[in-house]
Design a protein around this nucleic acid. Structure first.
Length: 829
RNA sequence: ACCCGGGUGGCGAAACUGGUGAUACGCGAGGGACUUAAAAUCCCUUGCCACGAAAGUGGCGUGCGGGUUCGACCCCCGCCCCGGGUACCA
């Protein structure tokens, strides 16, 4: 029971968190303690990822994230910065809409309720949030500017509409971004995703691929996050190689054209993307994606039926079955192409293992050196030629699997003997001289589909006029207000519910005034969150998206700490939007976040917390029981902040005991006599350690250091001196702000402890003149000797040999002696 | 399959750029003080094995197997396991 019951305090001066926290939360509000000075010197913008205000309320994961940010922000405030720590709510999106549908309450009613509940919980947790600058993405005051951001992209030609095959969730009845599909299933509801052809709005983020990738090297971001973005952007270097298509009637066996430079081009040529141009002599067939536009042109009459049937079957297939079955399928088109290196005719196939979205939607297949091509060639009995060999022996061995290793070229005419790396460039040069290839860099990143056929989002500010075509809503007519309509349920039509709302749907054309129609799609929630950090400092301004002067003062964001689950979505989109606004000369920086750190995930009983697992814990009851200070500190004590931790109740009592001891030490401290020299030494070491650990987010070790100090402070039932305690209260303040304020006041401090500064440590106190030298014999520690800090090797050796416990291991003349001054002596015998 | 993390006591975890008998800090456990009693509080013990009445002494220990070094939780090579991400990307 002791683990779940807070210690009942002894009779005298008792630490009662419920009283302390209630008192100080009221005072903070009254005194505006958490309000940043927006024109303050030394600005420090501490940004945390704004939450989606769910009906369930704040969960432990949210609080873990916010507390870690809050500690960082508070620490920098103590260090003398003007800290701005805002928070808002990311309240649009499918999540809210689905929940609203489920409980039958309109989101416009539900969201404000949820937000009120969140704010109550966040205040109860003691976060230093400046609510004056809160944002709510669902308010017209906010999404007016989200729509404005869309228009900035539109103006620059970065927003476009195209008919595209998109991921469609049949359950949520909406389009999903690729990022919202997990293993072929809808990330939200788990339904199997289908492919659908719809008209969609896209942003040309792929135009920014190179910049988004190159800038990463300069960013002070968590390495794991940068790596995730690099993988997502997916740069690969290679070449476009053009293959002439021969007349389909030419017979494969006879189709050698080496005696002429003229390729008998029938309809067209096919360009493929490859990262292995060095293997071109081994390219024995081509494969096109089934939906490749050239397929119709080249297919022979005999193969037409088979090709059409295959195309129809792959088109009907959804992502799941396409990706799960790795068995190779395909059909011969009846057409041939000329391999520009060997000048032989090679068959052209279609197969769904070639994706239209990547590269050119066509590949040259080198079955000898690509696993997928090898598998395909085996299934359809196509030629497999070795063109790379690891060694002499290899060169003579037939291939039983694709060889993807390093080596030298063989069977490659004039290029035989070249190493793979060298050959890549040499072969491309040679092909280029014959106009058959050019080096290219390809990116995996594809354009960002931002339209959603749903209700709960900002309407895309576009009007369609029969006379004038696509017209952006003029900026002075923003916002396009999302109407409050009772029937917002999506249906299977693929058209947003807004289309059913005639008075909203029909609108005069901004250009000609004739009746026109509104765009009925709303935008992706990731657009809301791609610029929110720009809004905070100007959240009180109705006339601009972001005030120039405030933006200059506060941005880029000084410190952003958030979950790595947003490594490639939110963080990449934010960078993109920032770059676009920079290019439009609206802001003078192109990277939004100067530093980004990823915190770990908080799990429970070895598993991610989730409703379905029933292992979710809500902070309310725990804060009620233990106090916010204890709960905050405990969360940070669980493990390294950047790694996350396994939540369990069992250790929380230890943190509470620590705060109880802090309270009793502080309230009983004396001013008579002088502080103890040894205790002071420990105090200054603790100040130093906390000052180093907190900015590194090494919160668990900072807390351990403070606990250690409290143990020293209280050792031997002594009464601590006031000067031994006062600085400790400041060290605790970022973690446990309420108790720190209360003790600060009791110890005679005025104003908020947050403005009292971070204690300085005296380096002189940390220098020891005597050093303890570890003595090892053959690398095994055998003892320690205390010598003067600058002792010579000889004196340390003789001191060590004077110790019988050490000397007994040294029976002969040492072969070697290693001496690390001030640290260690190793005697090798 | 690939890319990131991570494997240390009964448990959560420490250990600076390879240099203090590995395991700080906390939980749990065992023992003691206070108490009529319990809770709370305070003190002591707590990696494993062997020998010893005890103080102690010796050996083994950071997922596994090798290696580099005077010295390795830390570096190198080869594996195993767990967590997260990506996935027919040519």
């Amino acid at each position: 029971m002791s683990a779940t019951t807070p210690p009942n305090a002894p009779d005298r001066d008792v630490y009662d968190p419920s009283v302390v926290e209630r008192t100080w939360q009221a005072r903070w509000k009254e005194r505006g303690t958490h309000q940043a000075n927006l024109t303050g010197a030394n600005p420090f913008y501490q940004l945390m990822m704004f939450p989606y205000p769910s009906a369930e309320g704040l969960h432990v994961g949210n609080l873990y994230a916010f507390t870690g940010n809050d500690i960082h922000g508070r620490f920098h405030r103590l260090k003398g910065h003007s800290v701005f720590e805002p928070l808002g709510f990311d309240a649009f999106g499918i999540h809210s809409e689905n929940y609203a549908l489920k409980v039958g309450v309109h989101p416009m009613e539900l969201i404000p309720r949820n937000i009120a509940n969140f704010r109550r919980q966040l205040d109860r947790a003691g976060l230093m949030i400046d609510w004056r600058y809160a944002v709510d993405t669902t308010q017209p005051e906010y999404y007016k500017w989200t729509q404005w951001v869309f228009l900035q992209l539109y103006k620059q030609g970065l927003a476009y509409k195209k008919r595209a095959s998109v991921n469609w969730c049949p359950n949520d009845k909406t389009v999903l971004a690729n990022e919202q599909v997990e293993g072929g299933k809808c990330e939200r509801c788990g339904a199997e995703v289908e492919q659908r052809e719809l008209e969609q709005w896209f942003f040309r983020i792929s135009d920014y691929a190179k910049r988004l990738l190159d800038n990463l090297d300069q960013l002070d971001w968590a390495e794991t996050t940068k790596q995730a973005q690099r993988n997502w952007i997916g740069r690969s270097e290679g070449a476009h190689v053009t293959f002439a298509v021969t007349d389909p009637r030419i017979d494969a066996g006879a189709a050698t054209v080496s005696d002429t430079n003229e390729y008998p081009i029938a309809e067209d040529s096919i360009t493929v993307f490859t990262t292995r141009p060095d293997t071109i002599f081994g390219a024995t067939y081509l494969v096109l994606a089934p939906e490749h536009p050239l397929v119709d042109l080249i297919t022979s009459a005999e193969q037409r039926v088979a090709v059409d049937a295959y195309r129809a079957s792959t088109a009907a297939q959804d992502l799941v079955s396409r990706k799960v079955t790795k068995d190779k399928t395909g059909v011969f088109t009846g057409a041939y192409a000329i391999n520009p290196a060997t000048e032989r005719a090679i068959p052209i196939w279609i197969s769904d293992y070639v994706l239209m979205e990547y590269g050119t939607g066509a590949i040259m297949a080198v079955p000898g050196h690509d696993e997928r091509d090898f598998e395909f060639a085996k299934v359809f009995d196509l030629d497999i030629v070795r063109v790379v060999a690891g060694n002499e022996q290899d060169a003579r061995t037939p291939l039983t699997e694709a060889y993807v290793g390093d080596g030298r070229l063989v069977n490659s005419g004039r290029f035989d003997g070249l190493a793979v790396d060298e050959a890549k460039a040499t072969v491309v040069d040679w092909l280029a001289s014959r106009k058959a290839a050019k080096p290219v860099v390809n990116y995996r990143l594809h354009d960002w589909c931002i339209s959603r056929q749903r209700y709960w989002g900002p309407p895309i500010p576009i009007i369609y006029c029969d006379a004038c075509g696509v017209q952006p809503v003029p900026e002075d007519q923003l916002p396009v207000v999302l109407p409050n309509i009772p029937d917002y349920r999506p249906d299977d039509s693929g058209i947003s519910p807004l289309a059913r709302h005639a008075e909203w749907y029909h609108v005069p054309c901004p250009r000609c005034g004739q009746q026109a129609r509104r765009e009925t799609d709303v935008s992706d929630t990731f657009l809301d969150s791609s610029w929110y950090f720009l809004r905070y400092p100007s959240a009180d301004r109705a006339d601009v998206a972001f005030d120039a002067e405030r933006t200059k003062h506060w941005l880029p964001v000084t410190s952003y700490i958030g979950g790595n689950e947003h490594a490639v979505l939110h963080l990449l989109y934010s960078r993109f939007v920032t770059m676009v606004l920079h290019d439009a000369k609206l802001i003078d920086f192109e990277e939004p976040f100067a530093t980004f750190r990823a915190h770990g995930m908080i799990i429970r009983e070895g598993a991610k917390m989730s409703k379905s697992k029933g292992n979710v814990i809500t902070p309310d009851a725990l804060i009620e029981q233990w106090g916010a200070d204890t709960f905050r500190t405990y969360l940070m004590f669980l493990g390294p902040y950047e790694e996350g931790g396994d939540y369990r109740d069992s250790g929380i009592v230890g943190v509470r005991r620590f705060l109880d001891r802090l309270w009793s030490s502080a309230t009983s401290a004396t001013t008579s006599g002088a502080p103890d020299a040894g205790v002071l030494r420990k105090l200054h070491a603790t100040i130093k350690k906390c000052g180093e650990d907190i900015p590194k987010l090494s919160y668990n070790t900072a807390i351990a250091a403070m606990m250690e100090y409290v143990n020293v402070l209280r050792a031997g039932e002594r009464t601590p001196h006031l000067d031994e305690v006062r600085p400790l209260v400041s060290l605790v303040a970022p973690f446990a702000p309420h108790i720190a304020e209360a003790l600060h006041e009791r110890l005679g401090g005025t104003g908020s402890i947050m403005d009292a500064g971070w204690p300085a440590f005296d380096p002189a106190l940390l220098v020891e003149d005597a050093a303890e030298i570890v003595v090892q014999v053959n690398g095994k520690t055998r003892g320690k000797v205390r010598v003067a800090k600058d002792a010579t090797q000889e004196s340390v050796v003789s001191a060590a040999m004077a110790d019988a416990a050490i000397a007994k291991f040294v029976n002969e003349t040492p072969k070697k002696i290693v001496y690390v001054p001030g640290r260690l002596l190793n005697v090798v015998v």
